[in-house]
Computed example of a mutant assay.
Amino acid sequence: MGARYCFSSKDFELLTGRNTAATRAALVRLHARGLITSLARGSGLWLIVPPEHADRGAPPVWWWLHDFLSRKEESYHLALLSAAQAHGSSHFAVLETQIFVPSSRRVLQVGPFRLRFFVKQSLAQSPTVALPTEKSRVRVSSMTTTLLDLLRHAPVIGGVERAALILGDLAPKLDPEDITESLNAASDVAAAQRFGYLLDLYGHTRHANRVHKWLSQHRAQRTRLDTSSCANDSEIAQRWNVVVNTNLESIA
């Protein structure tokens, strides 16, 4: 499994054989010396701070994220821009770690790291992969699921143009079986229409045909490519029933 940087007060008590009062006192001393830091106030969870990361107050977030979240959020996974980065898209610097969880959680700041949580109702059904990190591993939405989520949450990530750029990075690496599995799990016809249109636009015909086959079994109503803009007199991509109300040709 690799190194573990996250532990609970109970873990510490069991490992050291101390009683609860002595455990609390020892943790306070370690915290005062900057050797550990608290994870989520009142959670009883702590993070080891190696000496080489003492100036930042925490080690890199991917070293401990899985150990921290899997204690209470078994279905968590990296989301949106963070997931895209994990899959190899480097178009955008990610200033926060974006994570899908099943219920609402506050933004968490640990040292210099900001963790932002998004609620996803179908979290447990979403296809994921476990990617190794330098010290541990992290659960990430599958590549197709990541692209569908980016299209569904385009306003949050800075617009459909960003989602399109990332799709251009990742589309050549898509797994056909993951496309079908992710479409079934998301069950979002409008996102599938935008996804298929962009695959066609960028010349990924084989993948686009698979999306079209999936859509043929669903009722596809007219949808805008950019949901944050009005349709006006924009062209209609008939195959996908998508209103092309933004120009992506320049980045295709």
Rank of each mutant, 00 (worst) to 15 (best):
M1P: 10
G2D: 09
K10F: 10
F12S: 06
F12D: 04
E13P: 05
R18P: 03
N19V: 05
A21F: 09
R24P: 02
A26C: 14
L35S: 13
A40Q: 14
G42M: 03
S43F: 00
D55H: 13
W64Y: 14
H66W: 13
D67L: 08
F68L: 15
F68I: 03
R71F: 03
R71Y: 04
K72N: 14
S75L: 09
Y76Q: 11
A79G: 10
A84Y: 01
G88K: 13
S89E: 04
F92N: 00
A93M: 14
Q98M: 15
F100G: 05
V101W: 04
V101C: 08
V101E: 05
S104L: 13
Q109I: 11
G111E: 09
P112G: 06
F113G: 11
L115Q: 05
L115S: 08
Q121L: 12
Q121S: 15
Q121W: 05
S122G: 11
A124S: 14
S126E: 15
P132Y: 08
S136V: 08
V138Q: 10
R139N: 12
S141I: 09
S142T: 05
D149R: 00
H153Y: 06
P155W: 01
V156Y: 00
G159K: 08
A163T: 00
A163M: 02
A164N: 09
I166L: 07
I166V: 15
D169P: 02
L170G: 02
P172G: 08
D175P: 08
E177D: 15
D178Q: 02
T180E: 11
L183E: 01
A185C: 06
A186G: 06
A190H: 09
A191T: 07
A191R: 02
Q193F: 07
F195I: 02
G196S: 07
Y197T: 10
L198R: 05
L198H: 07
D200P: 05
Y202C: 06
H207K: 10
R210M: 14
V211C: 08
V211L: 10
H212S: 12
H212V: 03
S216V: 09
T223H: 10
D226H: 07
S229Q: 12
A231K: 12
A231E: 13
R239M: 07
R239A: 13
W240H: 03
V243H: 03
L248S: 11
